[in-house]
């Protein structure tokens, strides 16, 4: 894309690692714009096997940090967050299924993240740092490709079908009040309960 002055293009270029930007962008258009959806996200390989609790791609040390970052993106409060939803397991599973082709660049991004954190926080790794330290470091790095990928993967892991390894027990769906049901009947919400029927004016 040649027009470097285009805000959108520059945003894409900045974040085109994985589909962090593509996903977010597409979602915005998808919103209304089914017409505009297209340019975004997506990857070809379909996921196949069932999600399990064992890690396949990520090492234990990598997993600790990935889970800690996910838990900052959607924290646990009175309701469970990304940690309880198993976002880590979704991400690990993605790296050997539908995102297998990008696993190495993801891990490289994670290594850079860890190196950068270690340079300024010499005693402990990111996952062992206190909450305020973690948030401050993520705030300072929230424009990075790695963080944007982590954000996209965490959210996908929160809301994708549980068969992909995340959204355990429908935790993501419960958080946002989404019922995973095949069929519904009206009334659907508060405002259509007492609708008197359409009358033209």
């Amino acid at each position: 894309m040649s027009d470097t002055d285009d805000i959108l293009t520059s945003r894409e270029t900045r974040r085109d690692f994985l589909f962090g930007a593509g996903g977010a962008l597409a979602a915005t258009w998808a919103a209304t714009n089914w017409p505009a959806i297209a340019a975004a996200h997506t990857h070809a390989a379909a996921a196949t096997s069932n999600g399990g609790a064992a890690l396949v791609v990520l090492s234990a040390a990598e997993a600790l940090d990935v889970e800690a970052i996910a838990a900052q993106i959607v924290p646990s409060d009175d309701a469970p967050g990304a940690r309880e939803a198993g976002a880590l397991y979704f991400i690990d599973r993605s790296m050997h299924t539908w995102l297998a082709g990008q696993a190495e660049s993801f891990r490289a991004g994670l290594r850079d993240f860890q190196t950068k954190f270690a340079a300024t926080h010499s005693t402990v790794g990111f996952a062992s740092a206190d909450d305020a330290t973690q948030r401050a470091f993520l705030s300072a790095n929230e424009a990075s490709d790695f963080f944007n990928s982590m954000r996209a993967l965490t959210l996908i892991g929160l809301f994708a079908l549980p068969q992909y390894g995340g959204n355990r027990d429908g935790i993501g769906w419960r958080l946002i009040g989404f019922e995973n049901q095949h069929a519904f009947a009206p009334p659907f919400g508060y405002y259509d309960r007492d609708y008197p029927g359409f009358k033209a004016r």
Binding site: A31, G81, L138, E142, I176
Partner: peptide
């Protein structure tokens, strides 16, 4: 609009895109 994944990926511009406030947005 979109179903949950795409909706969650599209946070409002200028608003928090992660953390407690983002969770409240979700």
């Amino acid at each position: 609009g979109p179903n949950p994944i795409l909706w969650a990926l599209a946070a409002p511009a200028g608003a928090p895109s992660w953390g407690k406030k983002f969770k409240d947005h979700l």
